[in-house]
Nucleic acid binder design. Structure first.
Lengths: 200, 200
DNA sequence: GGGAACACGTGACAC
DNA sequence: TGTGTCACGTGTTCC
């Protein structure tokens, strides 16, 4: 995906990032923070967790497909008693794959609150895609967790701004030397020297 | 807060951002996405929601302080039946302030899952502070929601990189012209022209 | 075992 | 009204 500098259309354009992972439903990377001991798989674009890349239907495929053994526990049927899984009448669930972290989504049943659940799910997916895009845009990502990614992105922005500013000054200094061709021994690298000459 | 370009210490340094909001426990900004019709308050650093700025104790102050009327409903006492608030035996809660969005934190009771709750709360706060820092680092934030912020940050990084790359080429072209003082009519601004001359 | 991190469903709110 | 967003507590997994 080519990173565009257009601000008005970036939101739609960035969604193309998710298409990279639709071909690898198997063996996604776990989203383990701080440690990163999981094998980094051969993602084409950025080695981010699978949840960051899948679109809304991709998660369904991820959970309902070959990894369907992870389903069946929890069983939050969309309406009341959604999260009170503290009760111990749950059957022992089948061992989920190690790369699946967090609560498992319940079966997609119809209900009055399903639209809300689905909307929230899509919002989470969109946020994950945005994280994926940011992860791809920041080359200096120390750790894989979100907080570190945000911190690295902030630091990278500051570094880029400082670098661009320095280069701009450098270009301006050189261009100023060009604007006065009568000056014989103009300086390029030293900004202070050129400035003193300009002020003189 | 001055944005540092040091990558190793940025995570600790960025945490200083939260100290700006500790003096304004009243009238925080609501975190409304896409609309942003709320009055933008006079934050000293960045006009982000209060939850993005408060540290871990700040939320306690925010909820337990003068806005304590918002407490008492929900009443998730930390252990079982935490989220099954669909049951209608709740008393009508006092009207919460309009700038308090989302589920209200229950009273801080001791329990076996309290540490988990507190850890998750601190994790959310840390993430919010990172969002605040990123929001402050990106000057072109179109909307206030997180997804837009991430998209804008990604686009801004791409723009900064392109700008820095262009400037670097420009500087190199100028420096290359300087490295060959025998060339009489060297060009500064046009990269293609200088390149053709270099390849000639 | 416990800390860390994420996903999930849900309540509340804004528009 | 419906849609979008966020905070919250919780379940789950990994180290």
């Amino acid at each position: 995906m080519a990173i565009s500098s257009s601000f008005s259309t970036i939101m739609d354009e960035l969604a193309a990032c998710r298409s990279f992972s639709s071909s690898i439903p198997q063996s996604p990377a776990s989203f383990s923070g701080a440690g990163g001991q999981h094998p980094v798989l051969e993602f084409e674009y950025c080695d981010v967790p699978e949840q960051w890349l899948e679109d809304d239907d991709g998660i369904d495929k991820l959970w309902d497909g070959s990894t369907a053994t992870a389903l069946g526990n929890g069983a939050t049927p969309s309406a009341p008693a959604g999260n009170d899984v503290y009760v111990s009448d749950k059957p022992p669930p089948a061992p989920a794959p190690k790369w699946l972290r967090g609560r498992k989504p319940g079966p997609r049943t119809v209900g009055p609150v399903l639209s809300h659940v689905e909307a929230e799910r899509q919002r989470r997916d969109k946020l994950n895609r945005r994280f994926c895009d940011l992860r791809a845009a920041v080359p200096t990502v120390s750790k894989m967790d979100r907080a570190s990614l945000l911190a690295d992105a902030t630091a990278y922005i500051a570094e880029l701004r400082a670098r661009a500013e320095r280069l701009e000054i450098e270009v301006k200094v050189k261009q100023w030397g060009r604007w006065r061709p009568s000056m014989r021994s103009w300086r390029c690298g030293c900004w202070g020297s050129a400035r003193r000459r300009r002020c003189a």
